[in-house]
Amino acid sequence: MGGKETPFPFTQEEMDRFDLAAWLPAHWFRFYRDNWYYFTGVAFVIGTFVMGFFGHYVSRVQAILIYNLMALFVHQFEEYVLPGGGPLVINAIFYGEKKDYDRFPGNKQSLVWVNTLAYPFYIASIVFSDKIWLGLAQCYFGFVQVIGHGLVMNIKGNTGYNPGVASALLLHMPIGIYYIAYVQNHGLIASSDWLYSVVALVSATICIIPLPILMFRDRRSPYPLSQEEMKRFDMLNKIQRTSPSKTE
């Protein structure tokens, strides 16, 4: 039996069905790096149902901060999916890159870290909701989005809208204002919270935004934005009209 060739061997398709490489962490990270922004829409829908059915189990302060986290999901979805085009706005308009805006200074590797590192910052303020300075810092972070998208990027790009500005103005700003008013009216803020919140905001902002971009910036980065990502909201054509030196 051992020396005979069986007439019923496994097919190549059957043998290829289990790919060990597909289960390695590196494979899953690559998948997440290329598709993370779609999960923000899923997370928002899940959060809506969770808060609708179980929101009464958390404190009012926690509920406000959870809604602010959900606003972050909407903000990221607006930037990267619908209408999308946010990465090009960041590279070409905010940072003023005229040539390698498909990968410099931000690329897929750095941008996935920028957006993912925001989650533990937001979640920490929810878990430790008694640390009002953390909640304030979270709200300030949303206000930074309002300034960045509503003023800086619109002024630099000479536009009235850029991907991310709607969620910043309609969600981050009112939720942040409501949180500050709520904790102020209920006497939950100590004098030191104002100082600690500013320190937390500056520290978190540095770690979340410029640090990953500086660590991974490379004009020859092997992680450029895809054509699909750049063409969303017609951003590629808009940028190319003002940057004729960039070729396909």
Score class of each variant (00 low, 15 high):
Phe8Gln: 10
Pro9Met: 04
Pro9Ser: 01
Phe10Thr: 02
Glu14Lys: 07
Glu14Asp: 13
Met15Trp: 13
Met15Pro: 00
Asp16Arg: 15
Asp16Asn: 15
Asp19Asn: 15
Leu20Asp: 11
Ala21Leu: 15
Leu24Met: 15
Ala26Val: 06
Ala26His: 07
Trp28Glu: 00
Phe29Met: 03
Tyr32Ser: 02
Tyr32Glu: 06
Tyr32Thr: 03
Asn35Phe: 04
Tyr38Ala: 03
Gly41His: 06
Val42Gly: 03
Ala43Cys: 10
Phe44Gly: 00
Val45Asp: 01
Met51Leu: 14
Met51Tyr: 08
Phe54Thr: 01
Phe54Gln: 13
Gly55Ile: 12
His56Tyr: 15
His56Ala: 12
Tyr57Ser: 04
Tyr57Pro: 00
Tyr57Lys: 15
Val58Ser: 03
Val61Arg: 15
Gln62Ala: 02
Gln62Ser: 00
Ile64Ala: 04
Ile66Ser: 00
Tyr67Glu: 05
Leu69Trp: 05
Met70Asp: 08
Met70Phe: 08
Ala71Leu: 09
Phe73His: 09
Val74Ala: 12
His75Phe: 06
Gln76Val: 05
Phe77Thr: 10
Phe77Gln: 04
Glu79Ala: 10
Glu79Thr: 02
Pro83Met: 05
Pro83Asp: 07
Gly84Glu: 01
Gly85Phe: 03
Gly86Gln: 00
Pro87Tyr: 03
Leu88Pro: 08
Val89Cys: 09
Val89Ala: 06
Asn91Met: 08
Ala92Cys: 06
Phe94His: 11
Glu97Leu: 09
Lys98His: 08
Lys98Asp: 12
Lys99Tyr: 14
Lys99Glu: 11
Lys99Ile: 11
Asn107Glu: 04
Gln109Tyr: 13
Leu111Glu: 05
Leu111Asn: 11
Leu111His: 11
Val112Trp: 06
Asn115Trp: 05
Asn115Ala: 04
Asn115Ser: 04
Thr116Leu: 15
Tyr119Phe: 15
Tyr119Asn: 09
Pro120Met: 02
Phe121Ser: 03
Ile123Thr: 01
Ala124His: 08
Ala124Pro: 05
Ser125Gln: 14
Ile126Asp: 02
Val127Ala: 09
